[in-house]
Measured scan of single mutants.
Amino acid sequence: MLDDRARMEAAKKEKVEQILAEFQLQEEDLKKVMRRMQKEMDRGLRLETHEEASVKMLPTYVRSTPEGSEVGDFLSLDLGGTNFRVMLVKVGEGEEGQWSVKTKHQMYSIPEDAMTGTAEMLFDYISECISDFLDKHQMKHKKLPLGFTFSFPVRHEDIDKGILLNWTKGFKASGAEGNNVVGLLRDAIKRRGDFEMDVVAMVNDTVATMISCYYEDHQCEVGMIVGTGCNACYMEEMQNVELVEGDEGRMCVNTEWGAFGDSGELDEFLLEYDRLVDESSANPGQQLYEKLIGGKYMGELVRLVLLRLVDENLLFHGEASEQLRTRGAFETRFVSQVESDTGDRKQIYNILSTLGLRPSTTDCDIVRRACESVSTRAAHMCSAGLAGVINRMRESRSEDVMRITVGVDGSVYKLHPSFKERFHASVRRLTPSCEITFIESEEGSGRGAALVSAVACKKACMLGQ
């Protein structure tokens, strides 16, 4: 009897593995994704193909990295998701002549009506938060230079001027797309009239992360975010950046690689679950690469896999709870928690219980395998993109072996128990001629924006502006 049951459990697990095998990517698959990513990057950089390229390769006008001589107080704003952060950054000489960066910050959550109302409502709310922060720190009387981390696709015309191309991540505030974001912020500050600010720089969160990590390690020339969304930036040779005049030196390019796949480059790798996630998203047909990796989508992918296993009578005796059938019910943090389970399955059992399920031991094991399959594919897909960037940098610099540091931020990278190990191992397999160091950014977005502002202020002083 026991043997029969054991055989049935083994057969069930084997069927589960057959279904989950769809998520496995072979090294040849990853090399294919990497080569296609490089081709799209090239198209994004070139003037004649930029418009139709899915990977936009947006110039950021960040050319210099901090040298350690900029000092002063800077205000930093960070808008990239449902939370908005205001930070005071003091850049100065530390002990023994070292450079020191001290920060104080406060988080504000953005109400739904500000995210989806008008641009005026959104930026009025942001300036209200700045006003509140300055009151708390008794700094209303000071006109501070301000660095703005704005983590949406922007076409820069200068370091302090950028046109919002399109909202992502659930934002829909009308009247912002096609307009200068810094102008919208300046107008809102003017409307309030109770404080003055000098907006000197606007950067993407990947750029802010790279600059913040450069402060720790001067070989950091790539910034990457794996959180709600997924994106990367890197220092490109100016001669390859056709959208900006000049051939000397390097400029940081914001790849906006989340949109890779929007022209069909990933079609052969998309599964039924991916198509369902895409169809029910706020932007169907867009940001397809990001939807395979980002935390906004990972939990939902797992939920759809679990429903398939229920329908195949391989999980929960073929019956799903009402909660499990509800879109968004299986949160991405559950994926991390399930994979963090120590082996007694308590954590998995508790999560499934909150979803109205009474799982068996085998159910718990199957749910864990589903989570591992989805998150491992995410790590491997992400590795193909980064390997594409790094191999490109090595080739354009004609280096036999390139040493490089990548600064990384984002909740999936930082909080998932195995993502970074799987990701690092896969990147290294795909970049055999590179020695890569990964560092995690601390308060990256805010500190990085302030350091970019410090560079901009120093330049302005040198130019006598």
Rank of each mutant, 00 (worst) to 15 (best):
Lys161Ala: 09
Leu164Ser: 15
Lys90Arg: 09
Val16Asp: 03
Pro432Phe: 05
Gly80Phe: 05
Ala460Cys: 14
Cys213Phe: 02
Gly175Val: 11
Met41Gln: 04
Gly94Val: 11
Glu17His: 07
Ala208Trp: 14
Thr103Lys: 08
Phe195Tyr: 15
Glu96Met: 11
Lys142Trp: 08
Leu386Glu: 00
Lys140Arg: 10
Glu51Ala: 13
Asp274Gly: 01
Ser445Tyr: 15
Asp363Val: 03
Ala173Leu: 07
Glu372Val: 04
Met202Cys: 06
Met202His: 06
Leu88Phe: 04
Ser398Trp: 09
Phe133Asn: 02
Phe330Tyr: 06
Cys382His: 03
Leu271Lys: 05
Thr60Cys: 14
Asp409Pro: 03
Tyr273Glu: 15
Leu134Ser: 04
Thr376Arg: 09
Asn283Trp: 05
Lys459Trp: 07
Lys458Glu: 05
Val310Gly: 03
Glu331Met: 05
Arg369Ile: 03
Thr437Gln: 12
Lys291Ser: 01
His137Ala: 09
Val62His: 12
Cys364Leu: 05
Val226His: 01
Gly81His: 15
Ser411Asn: 15
Lys39Tyr: 15
Val452Ile: 15
Asn240Leu: 11
Ser441Leu: 10
Asn166Leu: 09
Cys434Val: 11
Phe438Arg: 01
Ser360Tyr: 06
Ala454Glu: 14
Asp132Trp: 06
Ile211Met: 11
Gly68Asp: 08
Asp278Lys: 00
Met402Leu: 12
Glu51Asp: 04
Asp344Pro: 02
His218Ser: 09
Cys220Ser: 03
Phe330Gln: 01
Ala114Ser: 07
Leu306Pro: 01
Asn350Val: 10
Phe330Asp: 00
Thr255Val: 15
Ser336Glu: 11
Asn204Ile: 03
Glu14Met: 15
Val16Lys: 00
Ser280Val: 15
Arg327Ser: 14
Asn83Ile: 09
Ser426Ala: 14
Arg325Val: 09
Leu47Gln: 15
Asn240Cys: 09
Pro284Phe: 12
Leu315Val: 12
Cys129Val: 06
Val182Ala: 15
Ser280Glu: 14
Asn254Lys: 11
Lys172Met: 12
Leu288Thr: 15
Arg46Glu: 07
Arg5Lys: 06
Gly318Val: 06
Glu290Gly: 06
Glu442His: 00
Met462Gly: 12
Arg369Gln: 09
Asn313Met: 06
Asp4Thr: 02
Phe195Gly: 12
Ser212Arg: 04
Ser109Arg: 14
Ser340Gly: 08
Leu314Gly: 08
Thr228Met: 12
Met462Ile: 06
Glu157Phe: 14
Asp135Thr: 11
Ile126Ser: 00
Ser69Asn: 14
Arg85Gly: 15
Val207Met: 15
Phe438Ser: 01
Val200Tyr: 13
Gln287Thr: 07
Leu352Glu: 00
Lys13Ala: 10
Ser212Ile: 04
Ser340Leu: 12
Lys13Phe: 14
Ser54Trp: 05
Glu440Pro: 10
Tyr349Met: 15
Val181Asn: 08
Ser453Gly: 13
Leu58Thr: 04
Thr437Asn: 10
Ala387Thr: 02
Val71Leu: 07
Arg275Pro: 03
Gln219Trp: 07
Gly175Leu: 11
Gln239Cys: 13
Asp73Tyr: 02
Asp113Ala: 13
Glu9Arg: 09
Asn83Val: 10
Asp278Trp: 01
Arg358Gly: 10
Met115Asn: 08
Leu165Glu: 13
Ser281Tyr: 01
Asp158Gly: 09
Lys190Arg: 09
Val154Glu: 15
Val302Leu: 09
Phe316Asp: 02
His416Asp: 10
Met393Arg: 06
Tyr214Ala: 15
Leu20Pro: 01
Glu177Pro: 05
Arg397Ala: 13
Leu292Met: 15
Val401Arg: 06
Lys136Thr: 06
Asp160Trp: 04
Met235Ala: 01
Asp3Arg: 03
Gly285Glu: 13
Leu357Ile: 10
Gln106Val: 14
Phe419Cys: 00
Ser263Thr: 08
Lys190Cys: 07
His317Ala: 13
His218Gln: 11
Val181Lys: 05
Glu9Val: 09
Leu301Pro: 00
Leu301Gln: 10
Glu339Arg: 00
Thr118Tyr: 04
Trp167Ser: 15
Ser336Trp: 07
Leu144Ser: 03
Leu88Ala: 08
Gly448Ile: 10
Cys252Lys: 02
Val412Cys: 07
Asp363Leu: 00
Lys102Thr: 06
Leu75Tyr: 02
Asp158Thr: 08
Thr103Asn: 10
Val401Asn: 07
Met107Tyr: 12
Ser383Glu: 00
Lys31Gly: 07
Glu216Cys: 03
Ala259Lys: 14
Gly448Thr: 08
Asn231Ile: 07
Gln287Leu: 13
Pro59Met: 03
Gly258Pro: 08
Asp194Pro: 07
Leu30Thr: 13
Ser411Glu: 10
Val374Ser: 00
Lys15Arg: 10
Ile348Asn: 04
His105Met: 01
Met210His: 01
Leu352Tyr: 03
Leu304Asp: 03
Tyr215Pro: 11
Glu421Ile: 14
Ser336Arg: 08
Gly117Trp: 08
Val455Trp: 15
Lys140Pro: 04
Gly170Lys: 12
Gln287Asn: 15
Arg186His: 11
Ser418Cys: 13
Glu443Trp: 04
Leu324Asn: 01
Phe150Glu: 10
Ala114Gln: 11
Ser64Phe: 14
Ser127Asn: 06
Thr65Ile: 07
Met238Gly: 01
Leu301Ala: 07
Met121Tyr: 06
Glu14Asn: 14
Val406Gly: 01
Gln98Cys: 10
Leu75Glu: 01
Gly227Pro: 00
Thr228Leu: 14
Cys233Gly: 02
Ser76Gln: 07
Met462Arg: 11
Lys420His: 01
Leu306Tyr: 01
Lys420Met: 05
Val55Gln: 00
Asp194Tyr: 04
Ile351Lys: 03
Ile110Asn: 00
Ala387Ile: 00
Val154Asp: 05
Asp187Met: 00
Ser373Gln: 05
Leu144His: 01
Lys459Ser: 10
Glu28Ile: 08
Phe334Arg: 10
Asp3Gln: 04
Glu435Val: 13
Ser64Met: 11
Lys39Pro: 00
Leu292His: 12
Asp135Ile: 11
Lys458Ile: 03
Val91Asn: 06
Glu245Pro: 08
Glu120Ile: 04
Glu157Trp: 13
Gln26Gly: 10
Glu27Gly: 06
Gly318Glu: 11
Thr82Glu: 07
Glu339Gly: 04
Val62Lys: 00
Glu52Ser: 12
Asp3Glu: 08
Ile19Met: 10
Tyr273Gln: 03
Leu301Cys: 13
Tyr289Glu: 00
Glu112Ala: 08
Leu30Glu: 11
Ala10Trp: 07
Pro417Lys: 13
Glu52Gly: 15
Lys31Val: 06
Glu319Val: 06
Gly448Lys: 10
Leu2Trp: 05
Val401Asp: 10
Pro153Tyr: 07
